[in-house]
Simulated scan of single mutants.
Amino acid sequence: MADVSDLVRRRLWELRRSPEVASQRSRWVIPVQVVERLARGGASFISEGFAGPLARALDTTESRVRRVAGLPAIPDPRAGIETRPDLRVVGSDR
């Protein structure tokens, strides 16, 4: 379950979100103490019903949570979208 705790810890850090806010974003399905325990690496099992609220709490896709938790994949309508960085070089013209 190191992958799940790494994901939780990383997303909380990236979003600058506290476990309390993550719990609130899950619509209080996931208690604050559980978010804290997941971030510390204390998870033993992530169920299929838990993946959706956890994804909502971490502001990520359910398929990502399911992948790191080792759960069966679900169809993700955004999987086929190709993206590329929109970069523009700013500087002197040559």
Rank of each mutant, 00 (worst) to 15 (best):
I30F: 07
P31W: 13
P31N: 14
P31M: 12
P31Y: 13
V32H: 12
V32D: 04
V32N: 09
Q33L: 09
Q33A: 15
V34D: 05
V35L: 09
E36Q: 13
E36V: 06
R37F: 05
L38N: 05
L38C: 03
A39T: 02
R40H: 12
G42W: 05
G42F: 09
A43R: 07
A43I: 01
S44V: 12
S44D: 12
S44F: 04
F45W: 13
F45Q: 13
F45I: 07
I46G: 08
I46T: 11
E48R: 14
E48P: 00
G49W: 05
F50S: 06
F50M: 15
F50D: 06
A51L: 09
G52H: 01
G52T: 01
P53A: 14
L54A: 06
L54E: 01
A55K: 02
A55C: 11
A57K: 08
A57I: 00
L58E: 07
L58R: 05
D59V: 13
T60Y: 09
T60Q: 02
T61I: 01
T61A: 14
E62D: 12
E62V: 11
S63I: 06
R64Y: 08
R64S: 05
V65C: 02
R66K: 14
R66I: 08
R67H: 14
R67L: 05
A69P: 00
G70R: 05
L71R: 00
L71C: 02
A73M: 11
A73S: 14
I74D: 06
I74V: 13
D76A: 00
P77M: 13
